[in-house]
């Protein structure tokens, strides 16, 4: 082999790297693989009831404990009283289901008075058609997010009926309100504002956002849910058809996307930006060929081959050295 100076070889090497990087950039391709946490949405082994977050089917779903931290990205910053949320996900080829659970000593079901704040939880996905990972804090222009927001007060409205002034303030008295039977007395309700309704078909609001301050109630409220507080712990179920439509995140077996979580503790005055949030983690929807079992066997085989090959290489090197 002809002798080459180190610098000439180095320049050649650097040039080759730059050229290859330019090609990869042009192709919008990356030579990396994720090592991050992955939430596996396996195929449900039995029917998933929409009204019972404690159903036995969830015992067969692998949990993922996701650390949360205070929201420190935009005002109002703070929260962080809930340190982790445990998440499980399954699908039945028609719907995808998530169950969130976290410790919360108090059950905060009302946000009626100005000083009352409810418990809540949210799941966030990159919206339909988004090619780059959005900012996990409400997305960004050109990279929207789809958020499912479960509210404990809506859950209470569904379970026990809407809480109105007489229930919230039993000793209050008012002689007369003009036009109180007219639609315009409650302009929010008259305008069809979801947040003003006294009756809800689901405790989960379907939302789309493209940056701070752009949270918008979605046109279609397609996410079902059920929250249950038991022994100081919330169990909240979310469910939606796999097909999304519009900006709503679609799911299909074999798909990999991202998901982030947020939890609010009303007793700690958490609301709006004051909450506990996670980063995006990977969400893998099972199906579409292959399986975890197959992969495990393949990986074990490769590890065995590497160990045997490495030991052989070590022995060969030693023999080669001794001969030299």
């Amino acid at each position: 082999m002809p002798a080459v100076s180190h610098r000439a070889a180095a320049i050649g090497l650097v040039a080759a790297v730059l050229a290859a990087a330019a090609v990869l950039t042009q192709l919008d391709s990356r030579l990396v693989s994720s090592q991050a946490l992955s939430l596996q949405a396996g195929e449900a082994q039995e029917k998933v009831p929409l009204d019972n977050p404690l159903a036995g089917v969830w015992e067969g779903a692998a949990p993922l404990e996701i650390p949360l931290s205070a929201q420190q990205l935009t005002a109002p910053m703070g929260g962080g009283s809930i340190r982790a949320v445990t998440v499980r996900a399954v699908h039945d080829a028609r719907r995808i289901y998530f169950r969130l659970e976290w410790d919360d000593a108090t059950q905060d079901l009302r946000a009626f008075a100005p000083e009352e704040f409810r418990d809540a939880a949210a799941i966030e996905f990159p919206a339909n058609g988004v090619s780059t990972l959005p900012s996990f804090c409400m997305g960004q222009a050109g990279a929207k997010v789809n958020i499912w927001h479960w509210k404990a007060d809506w859950q209470a409205d569904i379970d026990s009926g809407f809480v109105n002034v007489p229930q919230a303030y039993p000793n209050a008295a008012a002689d007369f309100y003009p036009f109180q039977d007219s639609d315009t007395f409650y302009p929010g309700r008259a305008a069809g504002n979801l947040l003003s309704r006294t009756e809800h078909s689901t405790p989960v609001e379907n939302i789309v956002a493209g940056g701070f301050g752009t949270l918008t109630t979605a046109e279609q409220q397609t996410v079902q849910g059920k929250g249950l507080w038991q022994d100081g712990r919330w169990y909240v179920l979310f469910a939606r058809e796999l097909e999304g439509g519009g900006d709503y995140t679609p799911f299909e077996p074999g798909q990999t996307t991202n998901v982030a979580f947020a939890v609010w503790d009303g007793s700690q005055n958490e609301r709006d930006g004051l909450k506990s949030v996670s980063q995006f983690v990977e969400l893998a929807v099972a199906g579409g060929g292959g399986g975890a079992g197959t992969e495990t066997f393949v990986v074990l085989g490769v590890i065995a081959a590497i160990i045997i090959g490495g030991l052989g290489f070590l022995l060969y090197s030693e023999r080669f050295k001794r001969k030299a």
Partner: peptide, 25 residues
Amino acid sequence: HTLANHAYGALGIVSAPPGTRTALE
């Protein structure tokens, strides 16, 4: 924190591995 969850996922263990959050902190 990461690998314990991967291991549980690969082995199909349906419980959360212990101490992951503490380890991360």
